[in-house]
Amino acid sequence: MSRIDHYIDAIIKRGITEAREDGSTAVEAHHLLLGIAATDGTAAHRVLTAAGLGRADVRRALDREFEHSLAAVGVQPAAYGLPRPSPDPERKPKLGASGRLAIERGFALATGKRDLRPAHLLLGILEAEVGTVPRALALAGIDRTDLRARTRDTLAREAW
């Protein structure tokens, strides 16, 4: 197994953990983003942390997006005292549509598998125009265009 295969496998496994903690049946792009933010030692992680997006920051942005989405349909989570999701250690979340698309976009951005690096996966997540990740980053005041540019610049300069 190549280095990138190990990395993608590790991020998907971390995404499964994140999905399980969310009570989700699917590993979506935001779970992969949490996985990247929680995995030190790669250019993708450095891009996120340089933008002020450590794992806890990404989690807060996602929580805010969830509350904002509920508010859009008239539900105020604080008014109902909604409990946090109950993690199910037996649940085996599968890769969901947004997670699969993020990985596919990341692969498509590389010139070939031998050129594929962790920042390609991050860029694949950031390239989504709609969905949870773009909404969460917007609500957190993150300029996705700038973050994508930083990621592309990192790809041009750094191997990992």
Rank of each mutant, 00 (worst) to 15 (best):
E21D: 15
W160L: 10
K113V: 14
R135A: 13
E21V: 13
E158Y: 09
R135G: 03
G23Y: 09
P77H: 07
P93A: 08
I16W: 09
E90L: 15
R152D: 09
I103S: 05
I12K: 08
G81L: 08
R20I: 05
P85E: 03
H31L: 09
F107Q: 14
A38Q: 10
G23R: 10
G81C: 10
T17M: 12
A102C: 06
A37P: 06
S24Q: 13
R64Y: 05
R46A: 15
E104F: 11
K94M: 12
D22W: 10
V133L: 00
G54F: 02
D22C: 12
G124Y: 02
E28P: 08
R148V: 08
R14K: 13
T42K: 00
T154A: 14
K92G: 11
R20W: 05
D146P: 01
R105Q: 14
I103M: 12
S69M: 11
D115F: 13
R14N: 09
V27P: 04
L126T: 00
I8R: 08
I142A: 07
A44V: 02
R46K: 15
V58L: 02
F107H: 13
R114P: 04
G112D: 12
I16S: 13
A51T: 02
M1D: 11
G112P: 01
G23T: 05
S86N: 12
F66V: 15
A128F: 07
E129L: 09
L123P: 01
L109H: 13
G99A: 05
E158I: 04
R3S: 15
I36V: 14
L137K: 05
H31I: 07
W160D: 11
L116G: 02
T151F: 04
T17S: 15
I36C: 01
A29S: 15
A61F: 00
E21I: 12
A50F: 03
R91T: 12
V73G: 05
L126D: 00
A110Y: 02
L126I: 02
P118Q: 07
G54L: 01
A159L: 13
D57Y: 01
T154L: 10
G106D: 02
L126P: 01
V133K: 00
A159G: 13
E127W: 10
A110F: 05
G131P: 01
I11H: 00
L95D: 01
R59H: 12
H120F: 09
G81M: 10
R105A: 14
R64W: 07
G81H: 11
R105V: 13
G15W: 08
A102V: 07
A140D: 06
T49A: 01
V27T: 03
G54N: 10
P83F: 06
T145G: 11
A138H: 13
A72M: 12
G35D: 05
A19N: 04
E65H: 14
R14H: 11
A156P: 07
E18L: 10
K94A: 15
L48V: 03
L33I: 06
K113D: 14
E28I: 06
P85D: 07
L33M: 09
R64I: 12
D153N: 14
I36F: 05
T25R: 15
D146Q: 14
V47G: 03
L82G: 06
L82D: 03
A79T: 12
D143L: 03
D153E: 15
G81E: 10
I4E: 01
G52S: 03
R91W: 03
R135S: 12
L33P: 02
F66K: 15
R60V: 11
G106R: 01
R152C: 10
